[in-house]
């Protein structure tokens, strides 16, 4: 995977930990996941890139009710239509995703577990792509997928009651998940993707380089290896969240 994310011709000094996490995520992306194969996972990643330019998404974004605009997404994959629609909505119109829409996905052919893994993939790829786009860099070529079957692993302790999907409880994790919460922290944003535990590990790893690790978040002043202090970071974080109309 060293051929990816070389940043050789990048005009800016990219920290080594950012390069490392981007490379390692690409490696995991190519592997079979819990509910999607390696080729499907890479297709999902590619579809997230198509979504940002989708004509239907632009039309839907401009009206009060997205369902009022009919049509097909601009798509570059053989993924089921319901998966393509989920990818496009998460990328372009996430604030209007509702519990009722998520609840209908299984009936339309996308299991809740597959939806969570799909979301985990595209948010990680999107944040890496946004890093590149924002620095004026080309998007990284997607990795060559690895053949193999998904594990179909569903954590036994996952339960409904917090968000739109089942999540692991805040306390009392056992078995393979017993150490999933970093430093015992179990904020809802950490639990959000826990129906697919590797998806939690993926975003935490990326976040530790692009933002801060869970341990680093306890430092409200400044982390030594960062060139901006915590107030500067939080101004950026909050402005991005506000533009995205995120209440959380």
């Amino acid at each position: 995977m060293d051929r990816y994310f070389s940043y050789e011709n990048c005009p800016y000094p990219i920290r080594a930990d950012i390069q490392k996490e981007h490379r390692e995520y690409w490696q995991r992306l190519a592997q079979p996941g819990s509910w999607w194969s390696g080729p499907e996972r890479v297709s999902i990643a590619n579809e997230s890139r198509v979504a940002v330019k989708c004509t239907l998404c632009k039309s839907r974004k401009s009206v009060l009710s997205p369902e009022s605009v009919e049509g097909s997404h601009d798509s570059a994959s053989q993924l089921p239509e319901v998966a393509v629609d989920a990818i496009h909505r998460i990328i372009t119109d996430q604030t209007r995703i509702s519990q009722s829409w998520v609840a209908k996905l299984p009936k339309n052919g996308l299991s809740t577990e597959a939806y969570v893994e799909l979301a985990g993939i595209i948010v990680c790829v999107f944040s890496i792509d946004e890093f590149h786009r924002s620095l004026g860099l080309e998007l990284e070529p997607l990795p060559v997928p690895v053949e193999g079957s998904p594990s179909q692993y569903r954590p036994a302790q996952a339960e409904l009651g917090t968000g739109f999907v089942a999540m692991l409880p805040k306390e009392g994790l056992t078995g393979p998940e017993r150490d999933l919460w970093p430093n015992g922290r179990s904020a809802n944003v950490i639990r959000a993707l826990s129906l697919v535990p590797p998806a939690v590990k993926d975003w935490l790893a990326l976040s530790s380089a692009q933002y801060l690790s869970m341990e680093g978040m306890e430092n409200l002043v400044k982390q030594d290896d960062r060139s901006i202090n915590r107030m500067q970071m939080e101004l950026i974080a909050a402005r991005v969240s506000a533009i995205n109309e995120c209440f959380y």
Binding site: Y12, P13, I14, R15, I18, R89, I90, I91, Q94, T95, I97, S98, Q99, V102, V116, A119, I122, V123, C124, F126, S127, I128, E130, F131, S134, L135, T162, G163, F164, V165, M167, N188, V189, R191, A192, L193, W203, L206, S207, A209, Q210, Y211, R226, S227, I228, Q232, M233, I236, A237, V240, S241, N244, C246, Y248
Partner: peptide, 22 residues
């Protein structure tokens, strides 16, 4: 670079929060 990293990170976080409805 560090500022872009934080912004890119939160482009992810808002989508996790809203797609899972937490």
């Amino acid at each position: 670079v560090d500022a872009v990293g934080v912004a890119a990170n939160f482009q992810r976080m808002v989508r996790i929060a809203d797609s899972m409805g937490i």
